[in-house]
Amino acid sequence: MSDFDQVRLVDVSRHFGRRRAVSHVSLSARSGEIVGLLGPNGAGKSTLIGVLATLVAPTSGGVYYGDGSRGADAALRKRIGLLAHEPHLYPELSARQNLTFFAELYGVKARETVDRALDAAGLGDRGEDEVSGFSRGMRQRLALERALLHRPRLVLLDEPFTGLDDRSVGVVTDRLRRLAADGAIVWLATHDLDLADGLVTHVALMRDGRMLVNEPAAPGLRARYRALIGSA
């Protein structure tokens, strides 16, 4: 299996002993969509992202990429890009070394791809500097470009906006819109309803592992869902 244009979660649950991280979630997304996995901390968003990324095995239920075939093989992983809480970067290496390593790992042409990614992250002139010296915002922009190096079909983002200033948030938001327009399936997990507003095309609201809302996005997310997710 090489490519797919939709991802389906069918009755996915994941328990850790008695703790239910994700409970009976069914959800699907097609290419061009930006799914907002919204909800407070501990709602199970990260676990669900992990399941989609093939890193976490569901206790029950299934994940279907495209025509329905399921698995965690290398060809499938080539189509998945993940940006998680942590940046997935080596602080001891330079930005360029980090990107080159991951580009080669994904088997994409290193030099041009890396140059383009550095520019996209706004770090064209900082490529040779060690990542440990970067600010949180720079690191996050670099991490996003690292996750997108191999032009994944399925883009998974877990709280990509934490620690970003307004300008960087704008850059990242635009980047996600362009990705979706180019045919990617974007899943965005965040607790911040204001940032998700106007960006996501579909809302999946989670709390305590369960999905409370599953509907197309409409303006005014905060007003609509405030009652459902409490204080957040």
């Binding site: 809480h85 942590e86 994904y106």
Partner: peptide
């Protein structure tokens, strides 16, 4: 572990 790069490695399209 720092930066969770092990997870990034596990995501690589390789055995």
């Amino acid at each position: 572990r720092y930066g969770e790069t092990l997870r990034a490695l596990l995501l690589a399209p390789a055995p």
